Computed example of a mutant assay.
Amino acid sequence: MGQPRPLALFGGTFDPVHLGHLSVAWEASELLDAEVRLMPASVPPHRPAPLATPVQRVAMLQAALERQSRLSLDTRELDRSGASYTYDTLRELRAEQGTRPLVLLIGADAFAGLPSWHRWRELFDVAHIGVLSRPGVEARVPEALEREVAPRRVSEPSALHGVPAGKVIELAVTPLEISATRIRELLAEGRDPRYLLPCGLFDDPALLAPYRAAGQSS
């Protein structure tokens, strides 16, 4: 039996999930030849609580991920009470997946702030890190982080296959400048951000109701 494909995790509040999220997750899956799971956060430690409830965000993600097999949904952080710490999630996945390569996908800006994360140095013990960056734009990182990641950097996705954790790779993906904040504003104003959101979110009016209701109550 051959080595299993890497499992990559792409987290966020997804409040709501939009085409920018799906586009970069899809590209990362192709570049890494990996299964990618979108993982909605429960109580993000570094940002305000989502407007939509966990049940509503899961329903939106399920609608967005229909009719394709490259991206899937993992709700474990919503099922776990308390703050969502990435290290705890990755450690749990490592226990489940054995030696299968795990890849944490994060944007270049979030990667630069990695030293503020809970148990950040231990992340490399349980997963690789895939830094989602703009083509031709090099991410600047703090000196302490650079010292940690310099010996771990690789340029070829194949270097992550067969190794459970510990590498850092930069993935040049096509950024779509879509703001979830702006989408919430448009919906609250009664407008229709048709080409910013997955088509499936418009099939059921209840999916976007939390954001429209926010405008009616303000």
Rank of each mutant, 00 (worst) to 15 (best):
S133T: 13
S81L: 12
R37M: 14
L93S: 03
E122F: 03
R121I: 09
Q68D: 10
F111H: 00
A112Y: 03
T89G: 04
E92L: 09
R70F: 06
P48M: 12
G98W: 10
R134M: 00
A52N: 08
S116D: 09
H46M: 09
Q97W: 10
D125P: 05
L114Q: 03
L73Q: 07
A139I: 08
A52K: 10
E96M: 09
R134N: 00
D74M: 03
R119W: 11
Q56C: 05
E138S: 15
E66Q: 15
P45Q: 13
G130S: 06
E138K: 14
V43N: 08
V137C: 00
R119Y: 12
G82N: 00
L105D: 08
T89P: 01
V58I: 09
A41S: 15
L65Q: 13
V43T: 13
L61C: 05
L31S: 13
G130Y: 00
I106A: 07
V126M: 04
L93E: 06
R76Q: 08
H118P: 00
L132S: 05
S69E: 14
E35L: 15
A139R: 00
R134S: 01
A49D: 12
E96G: 05
E138T: 15
A127T: 10
R121Y: 05
I129R: 00
H118I: 02
R94T: 07
R67P: 06
A59R: 10
D74C: 06
A64M: 04
Y85H: 08
L73A: 07
R80C: 05
S116P: 03
V137N: 02
R121F: 02
T99A: 14
A59L: 02
D88I: 03
R37K: 15
L71K: 09
L73K: 04
T75F: 04
S84Q: 00
A41G: 13
L51N: 02
T75D: 01
A83K: 08
D109N: 07
E138Q: 15
A59G: 07
W117Q: 08
L90V: 08
S69K: 11
V103M: 10
S116R: 10
A139S: 10
P48V: 12
D88S: 02
L32K: 15
A34T: 11
A112L: 06
L38C: 14
L51I: 14
G98A: 06
A110V: 03
P54W: 07
T99F: 13
W117L: 01
A127F: 02
S81A: 15
I129Q: 06
S72R: 11
P44I: 04
G113M: 01
V36M: 14
E96F: 01
D109A: 02
M60V: 06
W120R: 06
L31G: 13
E138W: 04
V131R: 02
A41D: 10
P115L: 12
L102E: 06
G82A: 00
G113R: 03
L132T: 07
P50W: 11
